[in-house]
Each structure stands twice: as structure tokens, then as C-alpha cells.
Simulated scan of single mutants.
Amino acid sequence: MKRTLLLINLLLLSVCVFPQENIEVNYATIKKYVENQSDDYQQLIERFEANDSLLSLNDYALIYYGHSFTPKYKGSMELWKELETLMEEKKWEEAYTLLKECRKKNPVSLKLLIYAVNLASELQREEEVQAYIDKYIKLSSAIISSGDGTSEDTAFKVISVNDEYQILNNVFKVEGLKQQSLVNKCDLMEFESSPYYEGTQIYFDISRSLEYMKDLFK
């Protein structure tokens, strides 16, 4: 497990250290693509699951943000209590089987991918560990290429609050998280320091999650 976590840390460090390509995330365009070209989007998901090395950063962005326009999207309301209970009880095989079912519903969840890395590691399935790590790295790269986090206008775009915590804790390694506040369509996260991010606050655009909640309670 420690070796796996070290590998994740080294790979995530490369995400932070090397310059990121900036990508434009246009939700209207992505929505139109997913709804009108659903077969093409599904093919992208299949290539993602197969760890297709030819997928570009823009492809990963489309895969990630596109999920929020599918019927499977649950905003920030997804809970995996049964899975987490099995993991706490160290029932690795049962947990891994359930995890795969959870990922069919949400293949782009960073939290589920971390669970997948941990479970595959416990079961000594090294190739699968690497495959899950690669997915995590590529999706994280797409997210931190969506902005710079310094303002509402340039916020990092995430489709789930869970994902913003993954970026904070596993990519930027923030220390001393102090406050979370909602500023219009953004979560403003304030913290003491980060070795990989300048400043002590980061904006995350959570508009997709907020829109889901709004539609849910109409």
C-alpha cells in the first residue's frame, strides 16, 4: 500500500510541476455533444476504461464533464457507504466487486478511482493498480487545466464536491484547511499553505452540481 501511495504521489507531482495546457470547458457545447452524439460519447468512455493512450487532454475533459449531462449523474449526492463499510472490514474481494458496479454508474469519480487503486493494491493486481492511477492522473490533469483557481471567473471546474477535495488533498497537498464558503457558483476553499499551489485560497466552479440540485428540487 505504501509503495502504491508513493507512486500516486510521484505521478501527481508531475501534474503540478509541469506546465498544463489550458482547455476551454464550454458546458453548452459539451451538453449538445453528449445528448446529440451519445454513441460517440459512449465510445470515448469505452476508450477511457481501456486506458487508450491516444486520448488527448481535451478528450479527458469531455469524458469528465460530459458525465454531468448523462442520466447517471447524481451531482454531489453520491454516497458509497456499503463500499466503505466493506473496505473498513477488509473484505477486499467483496469491496472490489461492488466498486466495479459503482464505477459503472460513475466512471469519472476521483474518489472511486482512489478506492480502486487501494483495493487493487490490496489484492495485488498490479496492472489494474496502474490503470486506475493513470485514469486518476489524466482526469486530474483535465480539471486543473480548466482554470487557475484564483477567481470565480478562472475557477477550477468540477462536477462533484468530492472531486474538489481530491484535487486539494492529493494534487495540491494543501495543509491546514480553514474554511469552505459558497461564493455564487463557486466553492472558495481557504487553507494555510500548499507546496504545489501559490496562494492560500482556491476557487472551484461547482455550477454543474448546483444545477443538478436545483433541478432535483423543482
Rank of each mutant, 00 (worst) to 15 (best):
E46M: 01
E46A: 03
E49Q: 12
A50V: 07
A50L: 06
L54V: 06
L54P: 01
L57G: 05
L57F: 04
N58I: 02
Y60N: 05
A61W: 07
L62M: 12
I63K: 00
Y64W: 03
Y64D: 04
Y64M: 00
Y65A: 06
G66I: 02
H67V: 01
S68T: 03
T70W: 00
P71V: 03
P71C: 04
K72I: 01
Y73R: 07
Y73F: 14
K74S: 05
K74F: 00
G75V: 01
S76R: 04
W80D: 13
W80I: 12
W80N: 13
K81R: 08
L83G: 01
L83Q: 11
E84Q: 11
T85F: 15
T85R: 15
L86H: 10
E88V: 13
E88T: 15
E89R: 12
K90E: 15
K90M: 11
K91C: 06
E93T: 14
E93D: 13
E93L: 06
E93I: 13
E94I: 02
E94N: 13
A95R: 06
A95Y: 06
T97V: 12
L99M: 11
L99C: 10
L99Y: 03
K100M: 14
C102M: 14
R103C: 12
K105H: 11
K105P: 02
N106G: 01
N106S: 03
N106A: 00
P107W: 08
V108S: 04
K111V: 08
K111E: 15
L112E: 13
L112T: 12
L113K: 01
N118Y: 15
A120N: 08
L123V: 08
R125E: 15
E127P: 01
E128L: 10
E128K: 09
A131S: 15
I133F: 09
D134S: 10
Y136W: 08
Y136D: 10
Y136Q: 14
I137T: 05
I137S: 07
I137C: 04
L139P: 01
S140Y: 04
S140C: 10
A142P: 01
I144Y: 09
S145N: 02
S145Q: 04
S146V: 00
S146L: 00
G149A: 07
S151G: 04
S151K: 05
E152A: 08
F156I: 02
F156Y: 15
K157P: 01
I159A: 05
S160D: 09
V161W: 06
V161S: 13
D163R: 08
E164Q: 14
Y165R: 13
Q166H: 05
Q166Y: 08
L168E: 07
L168I: 11
K173H: 15
